[in-house]
Amino acid sequence: MSDLTDVTNGTAHATASSRGPHFDRKASVLKSGRWGDKLFEYGTAGAAWLVLLVLGGITFSMAWGGRLAFQTFGPGFLTSSQWNAVTGDFGALVPIYGTIVSSAIALAIAVPVSIGIALFLTDIAPRWMRAPVGIAIELLAAIPSIIYGMWGLFVLAPFLAQHVEPWVNDHLGQWPVLGPLFRGPPIGIGLLPAGVVLGIMVIPFIAAVARDVFNAVPAGIREAAVSLGATRWELLSRVTLPYTRSAIIGAIFLGLGRALGETMAVTFVIGNAHDLTSSLLMPGNSIAAAIANEFTEADTDLYRSSLIALAFLLFVVTFIILTIAKLMLLRIERISGKTD
């Protein structure tokens, strides 16, 4: 009897005593959970803010660093082709021209090729071939730009000088209006070679996005076209491209953003000459190449500030281009369920 009471007492006691601490522990777990959650949320949000801070910091520090050049030269900085470290007279026209022209050449090469590759990877290649070829094209994007630069300088430049530029001179150089663009000494260094290297570099970026975009076209639409007897070319030109037009423009702008800011590959082959020439075969300069080449040698505040001002222009322009690209790609991303 007494044993029994003892036992029941004991168990009762035990439950009571275990309930107390148990509830306390639960409460403290809840509390620490709440505190931990808040802390965790603020911590991760802080890291997210840091991304915005980096962008803001870059924009501000470039504007601040370039203010001396902007104050000294005013809007004339954009239109002057002078670049003279001795007299301290700097203008951005030559690098801006070189950046635009080399990127334009790059897109002229890369856009048709990339769309062809995307078409090949989505509709033409046998299934077993798609993954390996796709990966090979993506590897092209993984090769560091410095390797492109070295290859451009030691392999592509002599090749262009011996085999391509003489032909360009003889044939395209005779064109009535555009002729002067293609006349010049075949030296393999200049705006045209820079554009070619850039074109090769941006092919994988445009091709990869274009492939994903093509793949995002609803199967129903494609099947409807095929069932009406469309050939593969008609499927592409009348269904896929019209359907994905804005996204393809987005992909092209993405490639353009890359091309405008690419530094090392261009620095190797563009020639780094601050001359404004009508010929694409002559050495020129781009914004990124000018900064890479000259910044450590810039010996005056104005010189350094002018280069940072160039960087500011480059950053603002690429920001706008990439924003357009992103907006153009938003719709197709929504369709393919990439963002919700």
């Binding site: 980096v54 870059i58 520090s61 660093g65 690419e262 910044f295 280069l307 480059l314 690429t318 990439l322």
Partner: peptide, 15 residues
């Protein structure tokens, strides 16, 4: 973040 992903790396160097 997507824009920073493609931002010119030379500008980051200057920053």
């Amino acid at each position: 973040n997507d824009i920073l992903l493609s931002a010119p790396s030379i500008v980051i160097g200057l920053f």
